[in-house]
Design a protein around this nucleic acid. Structure first.
Lengths: 187, 187
DNA sequence: ATGGGCATGTAACGAGTTACATGATTTT
DNA sequence: AAAATCATGTAACTCGTTACATGCCCAT
C-alpha cells in the first residue's frame, strides 16, 4: 500500500504545480521558480524544497531522473507522474477557498503605533515605500516576461493582479505616512 | 542570568503589543483580540497563545495574576512588565522592514489555471468573492468600533487600510472572473 | 584568485497545528 | 435540552528555518 492518498502541504502542491507545466526540473530550478511566486505565495527555504521533493517521491507523485555528471554527484531532475497530475487536479478542483494568510509586519507595527514615536513610524514607512517600489520593479520584469511567453496566460493574469496589489500598497502607505506626519506635528 | 535578552517570535511581539494597551488579559481574551488582527496578521492557534505566554513569563516580560474562581482552576490574567515594554519598544523601533508574507491560495490556484477547467476556476472565484464580501462586513464592524473608542487611532488607521485592501481584492477578483469567463466561452 | 551562481544535502531547532480532554456558564 | 461560549491545558506531530558542509563552473 502506497501513501498516495494522503493530503499534502501547500508547499507540495506548489511544487507539483510547477512541475505540471511539463518540464523536468532540478530542486534548484524549482526553487528559482518558487521565487517568482513569492509575490503572492511565500517561498519556502531551500532545504525544504529538497525534503518535500523526497516526500513526493515516496508517494510516487514525482519521479526522479538522474543526469550523470562528470566528477560530481548526479544532477537530479524531477518530473510529475500521472498520479501526481491527478492529485494536483484534485486539489485544484477543491472549491473550498482557504482564507488568505497575511503577515504584514508594517501594518502590525502601525497598529501598535501608540508605543512608538512619530519619527520611528515615519522611518518605517519610508523604508516600506522604498521596498514596495523595489518589488513593483521586480514584478514588472516578471510580468513582461510572462506576457511574452506562450502558455503563461494564467501566471500573467496573477502577475497583473499582483501588480495592482503592490500599487495599491504604495498608495496606501503614502496615505498612512501623511497621516502619521499630521499627528506628529500635532497642529 | 535571565533570558530577557533573546529575540522573540512575531507571535510573542503581537501578544506583548496587545498587552501594551495596558489592560490585564487572560489567554482567552488575548486570543479574541488577535482575531481582530488576523485581517492583516495571521492569528495563531489557541494552544500557541498559552505556550507563548509561558515563554514570556519565563523571560519576565509578562507577569501572571491569578484570579481565584470558586470550584474551578484560577483564571490567569497577564500584564506586561517594564522589561516587556522596553523589549516591545525595541522591536517597534527596529526600522528593518520585513517583507510582507502572503499565502494567497486563490491566486496560487489561478496561477496553475492551465490544469483546471474554466468551470472550476469560476466556482473558486465566486466563492472567493463571497468570502471577501463577508470579511469586508466583519472588518466594517471592527472599524466602526475602533473609530468610536479613545486611544484606538492607530488600530483604526490599520483597519481603514485593511478595508481598502479587501475592497481592492474584491474589484480584482471580479476582473479576474470576467477574464476567466471570456476564456471559457472562447469567443 | 575571488566572488557569485549552480547544485545538493544534513542536523538541530523552533514555530505552529490538530486533536484531545475537561468542565462551568450562558443563551437559544 | 442542546448548543455556544468561556476557559485552560497537554501530547504528538508537521512544517519550516538557520546554519553548516561540499564542490564545480564562470566571469572579472
Amino acid at each position: 500500500m502506497t501513501k498516495r492518498s494522503q493530503s499534502l502541504s501547500n508547499t507540495s502542491y506548489t511544487i507539483l504545480g510547477i512541475l505540471s507545466f511539463g518540464e523536468e526540473l532540478s530542486g534548484y530550478e524549482i526553487r528559482k521558480w518558487a521565487e517568482n511566486i513569492r509575490f503572492f505565495y511565500w517561498s519556502p527555504a531551500q532545504s525544504q524544497i529538497y525534503s518535500e521533493l523526497q516526500r513526493l517521491e515516496e508517494k510516487e507523485l514525482v519521479f526522479p531522473y538522474a543526469v550523470p555528471q562528470e566528477g560530481k554527484p548526479d544532477k537530479r531532475l524531477y518530473g510529475i507522474t500521472e498520479f501526481g497530475i491527478a492529485k494536483f487536479q484534485g486539489w485544484l478542483s477543491d472549491e473550498e477557498v482557504n482564507a488568505t494568510v497575511i503577515k504584514h509586519s508594517v501594518a502590525l507595527k502601525l497598529y501598535f503605533g501608540h508605543m512608538a514615536t512619530p519619527d520611528i513610524l515615519t522611518n518605517i514607512f519610508q523604508r516600506f515605500i522604498a521596498e514596495t517600489e523595489e518589488i513593483l520593479g521586480q514584478l514588472g520584469v516578471v510580468q513582461e516576461y510572462l506576457e511574452n511567453h506562450p502558455n503563461m496566460e494564467y501566471p500573467a493574469l496573477v502577475a497583473e493582479w499582483g501588480y495592482h496589489y503592490y500599487n495599491a500598497e504604495l498608495t496606501m502607505a503614502k496615505k498612512m505616512l501623511a497621516r502619521i506626519v499630521d499627528n506628529g506635528t500635532g497642529s
